[in-house]
């Protein structure tokens, strides 16, 4: 019987901390997929996933924010029930709403870049209102560009129909989510560690 010996190559302290944060934000985004509110007047139900994307970008920065959302998408693809309504599996990624899911890592990266810039991470509470709002508006654009293109492609409908079915009903909800994210980041209720 042969045995092989190999040294243990420990993961560095900083990477472990970032990995823990990234995994927790991915899980939080997954939980947000279950939290459903109804818009007043239209009563379109919406979930808070995109809020998770915003927060990952704001608190983790461009690199780890994108990594966190990649973990979220990968976990959903291999079966964690983290997509809207408890969905999971590769089928969701190729499904009509898959475009939205593919966009999350990019959108989190956009938010991170907008808030922190390319260099060292800054305290998100210190970021100016214009920066926060601009970053989230840009990320929302990314999410909807991927989402409607994906819907049009997968469902074989025209782009106009895709916008009508997959984007227009949800835009007011995005504004509420962005407002909530800004309020949370700038309040004293949350202390980033």
């Amino acid at each position: 019987m042969s045995t092989t010996t190999e040294g243990v190559d420990l993961v560095g302290e900083e990477v472990v901390g970032n990995l823990a944060r990234a995994a927790l934000f991915a899980a939080l985004t997954g939980v947000f997929a279950y939290v459903s509110f109804q818009l007043p007047v239209t009563s379109v139900p919406f979930t808070l996933q995109v809020l998770g994307v915003f927060l990952a970008g704001v608190f983790l920065g461009p690199v780890w924010g994108a990594a966190s959302m990649a973990i979220y998408v990968a976990a959903g693809a291999v079966g964690a029930p983290v997509f809207a309504g408890g969905g999971a599996g590769l089928g969701s990624l190729f499904g009509p709403w898959g475009g939205y899911l593919w966009s999350y890592p990019f959108a989190a990266g956009v938010v991170g870049l907008g808030v922190h810039g390319a260099g060292e991470l800054v305290d998100p509470g210190d970021a100016s209102l214009a920066r926060l709002v601009g970053a989230m508006a840009a990320a929302t654009l990314v999410v909807y560009a991927f989402g409607t293109a994906g819907y049009a492609l997968v469902n074989d409908v025209s782009l106009a129909t895709a916008v009508l079915v997959a984007a227009v009903p949800f835009v007011p909800a995005e504004a509420i989510k962005a407002a909530a994210a800004v309020a949370v980041v700038r309040s004293d209720a949350v202390v980033a560690r």
Binding site: A20, A22, A23, A26, V31, I71, A75, V78
Partner: peptide
């Protein structure tokens, strides 16, 4: 590791 953690933390 991240995927495993998501399953456990969810």
């Amino acid at each position: 590791v991240g995927v495993g953690l998501v399953f456990r933390l969810l």
